[in-house]
């Protein structure tokens, strides 16, 4: 099974129309990867679908970087009892 980081990068690349190689943990979704507000909503939706979790919109949309998203999602998975590869 792919790790949380790999899965986050794959979803990000798909939604933002970039290659996985272009997505780095330190990248900001908006300033580095060019996510517009509508794409942020799409990213949250696709992360929820990918991991089978429910995220609080305010908290999820406050996450700025790819690395931050990996950490945030791993925590939500743990809270909601979803098994993931770290």
């Amino acid at each position: 099974m792919a790790t949380v980081a790999e899965r986050v990068i794959a979803v990000t690349a798909q939604v933002l129309k970039v290659t996985p190689e272009e997505v780095k943990a330190e990248h900001s979704f908006t300033t580095d990867l060019g996510a517009e507000s509508v794409q942020s909503i799409e990213l949250v939706a696709m992360f929820e679908e990918e991991f089978g979790i429910e995220m609080d919109e305010d908290a999820a949309l406050a996450v700025e970087t790819v690395g931050g998203a990996v950490e945030f999602i791993a925590n939500v998975c743990k809270e909601q009892g979803v098994d993931v590869e770290q």
Partner: peptide, 15 residues
Amino acid sequence: WFIEGIVTKGFGKRS
């Protein structure tokens, strides 16, 4: 939040 042709959770109710 009806965005890009679909209903989404958007920025949520607090927003």
